[in-house]
Design a protein around this nucleic acid. Structure first.
Lengths: 234, 234
DNA sequence: CGCAATGTTGATGTAACTCAAACCTAGTGG
DNA sequence: CCACTAGGTTTGAGTTACATCAACATTGCG
């Protein structure tokens, strides 16, 4: 668990790294040779839980790719409260927002659990994208998808009430896992922030849904969805 | 202003088209030869005002680049009301969200005024990005910036009240133009939707700001900002 | 110039927030 | 490994900002 803190350079390690890189959607279109080239330049690091990867105001100059763990992206609004933007997991990348030269990010990234994350300096990223256009195309596609997701969340926040938002969120979790037993990716406090609610309102709506019989609240952030159709139709 | 409805093919027309393409941020990193190549493949079109460029469900397979005019991007929420996502102007592009093969867009694009828009089929776009990686890099940067903007709007909607949202919006208009006399890009109805408010609330807050002396409401969507500092500090 | 869409103003209702207090859970350190 | 504690969660009561409904005024397009 602590043997990869520093690059060792032995063949076994490089192979493993290449395997990791190959699993990242961003690099999935690369041919083996290119994959090897990328793997050699990427710096893997372990991060403990609750570590701040970057903060607002810093000029974070690294693209980070998550191999294992979860990362919370959030903003501090002008009125001072925390707004969760998204939760990232394995295969996702972050730090691209400051790729536009000079711009400093206005949000924070925090590991929610111990995480394995690869880093790539922005200068290098720029060269990579020019050298491997397929990575650039993949990145365009990923950003498009992420943008569409954020826009969807935006119109949910603006247009729907608390119940609709919560139901839609639960359905998204359900569709992602395919199972009736879903697990919140983080604390209810953060989920509430993500949904634009106070923790109190989230708690109330969840118990309300439970009373109606649409779901059952379990321990350890588990929720068993009993009536998926009802939630979808809300 | 109306002589370019159809491509004419004479040198003058091509030069003009090349000039237009060169002004699009997306293509700003291209060298002259590449610029010519792009200009030859791009199809310019005129659109009347209030024309639907694409709608939800359609598999829109074109990247569109705005040369002149304004385009409203909006979604119909599940509860049936219109949510404005953004207003695009000259130099902006749209239609990239369905670039991810197969995905159908869930939002609509409508011209707010007569517009000149160039089209590029997605297949061609894919080839272009591979052939001209600098365009892909530019697109990554643009999408990053757009994502950051949407995330900002998101946290505004979730975290701030009506006054803060309106004040921040007015400040954004002010910062974009640099002048104290700003002009709403579209109807107040649409601006209200963009800010996640009802038209009634927007109207009330604007008159309230006027009574305080922070601004003066003019005709034709003009607003004169009298106390920029107060608005910024709200 | 006339009509439909947009914008304004007022009265009323309610969903969700705030504040507060008690309870529970999960990581801490001994 | 267990007990401690800080943060997370739940429940309750009271408040308010904003939506809704409605009537009227204005704008600007055909």
């Amino acid at each position: 668990m602590g043997a990869m803190d520093l690059p060792h350079g032995h063949p076994q390690g490089d192979d493993a790294l290449e395997q990791l890189v190959a699993r990242v959607p961003l690099f999935s279109a690369l041919v083996p040779d290119e994959l090897t080239a990328v793997a050699q330049r990427v710096r893997p690091r372990k991060h403990p839980r609750q570590e701040q990867l970057y903060g607002a105001g810093e000029k974070n100059s690294k693209l980070m790719i998550i191999h294992a763990g979860r990362v919370k992206i959030y903003r501090i609004t002008e009125s001072g409260h925390e707004q969760v933007i998204r939760i990232l997991g394995p295969g996702d990348f972050l730090g691209e927002s400051t790729f536009i030269s000079g711009a400093t990010s206005d949000h924070f990234a925090l590991t929610l659990e111990a995480s394995d994350i690869c880093e790539l300096h922005h200068d290098e990223l720029h060269d990579y994208l020019l050298a491997y256009p397929s990575v650039a195309v993949k990145m365009v596609e990923t950003l498009s998808a992420r943008l569409a997701g954020t826009e969807h969340q935006l119109s949910m926040l603006a247009g729907e009430d608390a119940e609709h938002r919560l139901a839609a969120y639960l359905m998204a979790l359900h569709d992602a896992s395919g199972k009736a037993l879903v697990k919140l990716p983080t604390t209810k406090k953060d989920v509430a922030s993500f949904l634009g609610l106070t923790p109190e309102t989230l708690s109330r709506k969840l118990t309300q849904f439970e009373e109606i019989g649409w779901l059952r609240l379990g321990s350890r952030r588990q929720i068993e969805l009993l009536d998926v159709e009802a939630l979808r139709l809300i």
